[in-house]
Design a protein around this nucleic acid. Sequence first.
DNA 1: CAACACCGACCGACCGGACGGTCGTGTCGT
DNA 2: ACGACACGACCGTCCGGTCGGTCGGTGTTG
Lengths: 208, 208
Amino acid sequence: MKAAPQGTARRAEIVAAAARLFDERGYHATSMDDIAAAVGIKKPTLYHHVQSKTQIVIWIHDELVHDLTDRLEQRVADKLPRAEILLRVMDDILGLLETRPGHLRVYFEHHREIPGEEGRVAREMRDRYTETVRQLIEEGAAAGEFRVENPGLTTFAFFGMCNWAYQWYRPGGPLTHQVIARYFWQIFMSGIATGPEVLEGHADRLDV
Amino acid sequence: MKAAPQGTARRAEIVAAAARLFDERGYHATSMDDIAAAVGIKKPTLYHHVQSKTQIVIWIHDELVHDLTDRLEQRVADKLPRAEILLRVMDDILGLLETRPGHLRVYFEHHREIPGEEGRVAREMRDRYTETVRQLIEEGAAAGEFRVENPGLTTFAFFGMCNWAYQWYRPGGPLTHQVIARYFWQIFMSGIATGPEVLEGHADRLDV
DNA sequence: CAACACCGACCGACCGGACGGTCGTGTCGT
DNA sequence: ACGACACGACCGTCCGGTCGGTCGGTGTTG
């Protein structure tokens, strides 16, 4: 049971500061003292607002996963074209790198640190998100929109493109997340080969 | 009575065990005691073979980056078709998930823990690898093989697909890394859309 | 072939420091 | 006078790393 959303401003501040520090220095290289200092308070005061370090990770994780899930399910409910939903999913994820800096790294690299029941729930939420996209792709294939042999693998390729961005994307660059999302979506939809002749010949023997 | 493996063998054993533990439990959740136990020795003996925990990370990192770089540059020197080199790069990376389990996670998530000069060199090696692929893509574009507006972004999309695999791929599944590499390469080259009509209409207003 | 020096692999016990977390207390605004 | 917010001082633990020493094998020397 959690306290009712009371010190919401402080809490948001703490989550944002922690996520940024975790992103920059790494989770284990960031002490509770560091987080407190970043918010302008001392450690015991930080513990007045927060139960544990793990709880901050859980907050970061939950904020992200709810944000993403809400948007995705709204679009599915609105019955947007499948290809467009995929485009927007990419944009959602890339956009988070600007609106919630640091959150994605925690989400991808530290979700395993959430123990017990809360960890189970957290991982369930991510699976649900992935599964929704997988179904979208599968339905698109059944409808003849997509050429998909293995929906699971295709989903992994899809998420790989945009999820990987947390490793290199930094806000403030020349390209907005909207532009990047559109670009990746184009590749995912149409590929980069100019013609079939580019693909011929080298299909065999990957073993050597 | 059992003949203790000597010198380099021990070192390889340590690197392999450490990488596997780092992958399973996380780097910071794995103590030097754990690593020692996994090799069947005690901590002081481990330190007889190893300078520091950081050094193990460096070893893991270097093994991987040299392995990848050697293969890639050999293929460039052999003047294989560019599309085929890309296919093989994907297969190299996916293959490492089997031949060097755990190494990729350390490579991606903990390279920032290598400090000072050695960290600089390590990061230079990765950049060189990425840059080689980027040039390959750029040349392919100039040669009319690939349709590429932004080679840098295209490279990120390419690596995203295969690098992300360390998050979900587990050896022993129904699909070999060769099959997955081919599959991802197909998507990267040709996309999944069955026709241009799938792409039309939803190109504007990503802002909302 | 003994006596001895040397050496690499090995380990029990220990150190120093960092870090997550707590306690008791003070200080406001209401 | 009460709760929310703040803090200095402190605790227990864990962990990277070290110290001093044992053991067994391998020359080397008379």
